[in-house]
Every structure is written in structure tokens, then in C-alpha cells.
Amino acid sequence: MKKSTDLLKYESLAFFGKVNASISHELKNIMAIISETAGLLSDMADMASTENPVSPESLKSYTGSVIEEIQRGFNTIRQMNRFSHSVDTPITEVNLIEMIDLVIQLTGYLSFAGKAHVHNCGDSKPFVKTCPFLLQAVIYQALVNQFKNGGPGMETTVSVCSQDQSIWRVIFSDIEQDSAHVFPDDNTKDMAEAIGVKIICTANRLELDIPSSIETVS
């Protein structure tokens, strides 16, 4: 586990910064919409006090927009909070479905992101004992690779299937490998290796084999 701790200090810090930057970008967009809508309502109020009446439909539509954006802001802050807490414990048991769901939300803040859904192939909950932060980083990079290769309109499903009792396989659908976006890069390879994750990446296949417990990784 020494290698994982070292990696947390270096490569992971870059990942943490990258995700936080994308979250702050999202929050700025939300604030910009709220600010502009408030400004527009103020402009409309000014107009109403002179000659132009303001329609109740317009008021309803714009206040509704502010409410929606505030909700979007709350959701973003909730994801930010979940992500920030992923560094609380170096090794812990996590639900893969929940983790992938969070990663999908986080990649959604990137301008080139397409759509992704998570799917559990089995009935049991896929728990793994791992370094959540590093695993999150590896899955994030895999999804980013998917979106970069597939373009903005792409949709992908991330399935979690049990291989045997010791391995969970994460399968990305609709693979379109582009040589311009090579996956995994060296940092991702190092992070995956540190937590015993095997990356299978070919022209039409992207899978991650995740050990049920990092303690079994030699």
C-alpha cells in the first residue's frame, strides 16, 4: 500500500484539482444564469413602472428558472461534498454502483461530456474494499476517455458484473477508440496498478477488473 500513499500525494492531487476546477466552472455557470435572470427581472420591473406591462407568464417562467438553477447548484454542491469526502479514508469498503454514479455526475461537468448510465448486471450490491479516491480517479479517466473518443453526443452504459467472488468487472459500452486519445495514460496506469485494477483496453473494448478487496492484491 506504500505505492498508493505516494500516488495520493502526487498524481491524485492533480486529479483532485481537475475535478474541483470542473465543479467550480459548473457553479459559475449556475451563478451567471441566476445573476442574469435576476437582472432581467429587474429590467422588466423598470419597464413595468414606465409603459410596458410585464406578463405574469414571463415572471413565472423566469422565477422558475431561478428556482431550477438554485436546485442545480445544490446538486452540484452535494456532488462536490461526496467527492471531497472520498479522501477521508485511505482504504474502505465502497459500493461500486454509487461510486460510478458519482463519477458520471462529475464527468458531466466537462464541456465535452456525453451521457452515461450505470447498470448493475447482478442482484447483489457490488461492494469492494479499496482506496476509493484512486479507484474513482481511474473510473473517471476511463469515462473521460470515452467521451473524448465518442464526441459530445455519445451515450454510454457502464455495467458492473461479477466475474467471480474476487473480481468485479466494469464494462464500458459503445467503445470508439481514437488513437489521439490513448487510454490509459501513465498516471492512470500507475493508479490502477497501485490498487490492483486491471485495465483491458482495445479498439472496441474497455473494461476494468476490480478486486473485491485490495488486501488480496500482491
Partner: peptide, 16 residues
């Protein structure tokens, strides 16, 4: 801008 709500609000303010 790819944010449609932003686009709508700013364009309306500029039009006013």
C-alpha cells in the same frame, strides 16, 4: 453559449 437558459436571458436583456 451551450447553456440555453443563459443564452435566452442574456439575449433578452440585450434586446431590452
Amino acid at each position: 453559449d451551450d447553456e440555453e437558459k443563459f443564452l435566452k436571458t442574456v439575449s433578452e436583456r440585450l434586446s431590452i
